[in-house]
Design a protein around this nucleic acid. Sequence first.
DNA 1: ATGAATGCAAAAACTTTGCATGACG
DNA 2: CGTCATGCAAAGTTTTTGCATTCAT
Lengths: 132, 132
Amino acid sequence: MDTKELKKAGLKATLPRLRILEILDNSSEKHMSAEDVYRALIEVGEDVGLATIYRVLTQFEAAGIVQRHNFDSGHAVFEMAKEEHHDHMVRVDTGEVIEFFDQEIERLQKEIVDRHGYVLEEHSLVLYVRPK
Amino acid sequence: MDTKELKKAGLKATLPRLRILEILDNSSEKHMSAEDVYRALIEVGEDVGLATIYRVLTQFEAAGIVQRHNFDSGHAVFEMAKEEHHDHMVRVDTGEVIEFFDQEIERLQKEIVDRHGYVLEEHSLVLYVRPK
DNA sequence: ATGAATGCAAAAACTTTGCATGACG
DNA sequence: CGTCATGCAAAGTTTTTGCATTCAT
């Protein structure tokens, strides 16, 4: 259960934190902004402050529990961290986010960076797509 | 000269617009935020408003004269549009931006998107790197 | 001259922070 | 109980907008 995960990260298992994890785990939209999470909690009758959402999500990111993405939307979106890395496609018509992974692209990125004399720390790849 | 380029885009060749193009063309740092451009102009004694910078850069983007990027910095950066497409590496230690292009990565992206039943509209690839 | 562009200031959107109160272990 | 977390409100950042004035054609 979530309580364990929080303790392990050195965070108290408070109600707001548990509720935020629930929302991220159970919402149909897995990529949510702080505002999205806030509204989802208010809707469920949970009395939480937006500032807390921001603080908690930032702590979760530092603890590796969630990942933060900056798509071209002017605001950050968060998703539960998965074991396996993946990249994203964003539908320009609906905003829907689609996850994908490609071994070959991952390999090429490392190779290119190496060729330039650097080490790859992390990367951000977003493909903006529309239906055929 | 720049005046022609502006006219062609249906924009009046005003002093602020010409100065902004000059800055983007001649600065040593080719990837600049609106604030960067603003400070560069103030430094040269050009009396321009920050709001104008934002308006002009947005118009330039729509006209294809500049490109806007959202690196993980909390603010947009702009660069003159080049004929040939390229992606970016960002040094995590210095913030320096390095441009690169890889035929194979470009091809793979199209292929993956196609495989999912979509068409690639555009993409954003940023590699965060540090020296070996 | 006329419509477009500018500068300023105000506002909007997103995120962070200070502080007193409340909850976890 | 002591400390850490929360909520609220205020402040910080980045970007946009309204409006009167100025400028390009």
